[in-house]
Simulated assay, not measured.
Amino acid sequence: MASAPRPSEDALIARFFAPLAAAGGLGLKDDAACISPRPGHDLVVTTDALVETVHFLPGDPPDSVARKALGVNVSDLAAKGAEPVGFLLALALPEDWTESWLAAFAAGLGEAAGDFGCPLLGGDTVKAKGALTLSVTALGEVPAGRMVPRTAAKAGDILCVTGTIGDGALGLDLRGDPAWAAALDAGERDFLAARYLHPQPRHRLAAALRENARASMDVSDGLAGDLAKMMRASGVSATVDLDRVPLSPAAARAVRAEPGLIDRIVTGGDDYEILCAVPEKKLDRLRLEAEGCGIALSVIGQVVPGHGAPVFRTAAGERRYDVGSFSHF
């Protein structure tokens, strides 16, 4: 029996993606979206590509892939103090794609778009001969001239991070069944796995970052490496109290089982938390506003003069991480 013909690109768009589109997407019936920032606001634009086997693994649930694709971009907007406006999606489907996979992907994408307040505006869907690849371009807006850069940290600023660090990297490592996993209960393993699959962008903190942070970026490629990037861009350095880097109960238990994991936690990626440099006089206000958003905020160190790699201090001495973040090259 001959297999049913695949639906056309227009049919796929109308069935799976048009229901997710915002007004500016024009029902996905045109070649472009049409949007205007609110008066007195700047547009902030960011893009990230995700490739199967690099950013997610074959067999990952399609709704999780969708949520991650949008979440990592909304995380970048949040770090800039930007409120989401919408996103564009470029989706390259492999030859063995199925309608059931695409339906689950679109459902997850719609749920994430609703949670993050970032609707679909348009994009492109194509067939690829290689691995599943998708790229999201997210747009946000900030009051004119108020985007929070990564280049403005000053000596004396206090370094803070949201949430907990290292969960995503440990969640990925769990797939290799490491020895330390035996020390965790099922709930802790599930928590770490979910932190890898489902980034939690801190978009609710955007306004507070605009008001209180001098410099900010999201932690996507590892705390040590991303901190080094921000300090280099700002022309300063930093000291970090490694014992103050916030760990989830699951990560803390893993470190007790295998103390060397602390280096993986500090250098691993997929945290999607916010790292920011805050003038000391504004720290209490940022803490209060983060608490009001239900987001944990931890002080981990301070910006200092100099141009060397950030120093991570422990009771046993100092650590510097020469390769502190993930790199494709």
Results as ranks from 00 to 15, higher is better:
residue 88 L to R: 00
residue 259 P to D: 07
residue 117 G to C: 06
residue 65 V to S: 04
residue 320 R to D: 08
residue 75 S to Q: 00
residue 125 T to H: 12
residue 132 L to R: 10
residue 52 E to W: 02
residue 206 A to S: 09
residue 203 H to D: 12
residue 69 A to V: 05
residue 68 K to Y: 00
residue 157 D to A: 02
residue 272 Y to F: 13
residue 106 A to N: 08
residue 15 R to V: 08
residue 127 K to Q: 15
residue 241 D to Q: 13
residue 220 S to M: 00
residue 38 R to K: 14
residue 286 L to Y: 13
residue 227 L to K: 00
residue 186 A to L: 07
residue 120 L to C: 11
residue 3 S to R: 13
residue 160 C to E: 03
residue 76 D to F: 07
residue 278 V to C: 09
residue 71 G to S: 07
residue 107 A to N: 13
residue 313 R to N: 13
residue 275 L to T: 06
residue 52 E to I: 02
residue 6 R to Q: 14
residue 118 C to Q: 02
residue 83 E to A: 13
residue 53 T to C: 08
residue 13 I to M: 12
residue 68 K to C: 07
residue 66 A to S: 00
residue 61 P to D: 14
residue 312 F to M: 12
residue 62 P to F: 08
residue 296 A to Q: 12
residue 173 D to F: 03
residue 328 H to F: 12
residue 218 D to G: 02
residue 97 W to V: 05
residue 54 V to K: 12
residue 170 L to T: 03
residue 256 R to Y: 03
residue 321 Y to P: 06
residue 191 F to G: 01
residue 115 D to I: 12
residue 79 A to Q: 04
residue 4 A to Q: 14
residue 273 E to N: 05
residue 310 P to Q: 08
residue 241 D to Y: 02
residue 169 A to I: 11
residue 183 A to G: 06
residue 311 V to I: 15
residue 271 D to T: 05
residue 120 L to A: 05
residue 208 A to E: 07
residue 238 A to H: 02
residue 98 T to S: 15
residue 194 A to N: 09
residue 92 A to V: 00
residue 312 F to Q: 08
residue 153 A to W: 04
residue 310 P to L: 08
residue 285 R to K: 15
residue 310 P to Y: 02
residue 229 K to G: 10
residue 52 E to R: 14
residue 303 V to T: 15
residue 296 A to R: 15
residue 202 R to G: 00
residue 287 R to C: 15
residue 31 D to S: 13
residue 194 A to I: 00
residue 38 R to L: 12
residue 9 E to A: 12
residue 141 E to F: 03
residue 179 A to F: 03
residue 314 T to C: 11
residue 55 H to K: 12
residue 109 L to Q: 05
residue 117 G to D: 11
residue 147 M to G: 13
residue 296 A to S: 15
residue 114 G to D: 09
residue 197 L to P: 04
residue 5 P to H: 06
residue 300 I to W: 12
residue 140 G to Q: 05
residue 106 A to E: 10
residue 181 A to E: 11
residue 15 R to N: 04
residue 182 A to D: 11
residue 71 G to R: 01
residue 29 K to I: 05
residue 245 V to G: 04
residue 28 L to Q: 12
residue 102 L to W: 04
residue 84 P to T: 00
residue 5 P to F: 01
residue 275 L to V: 02
residue 278 V to T: 06
residue 241 D to I: 05
residue 185 D to I: 01
residue 174 L to I: 09
residue 182 A to F: 02
residue 171 G to S: 01
residue 211 E to V: 00
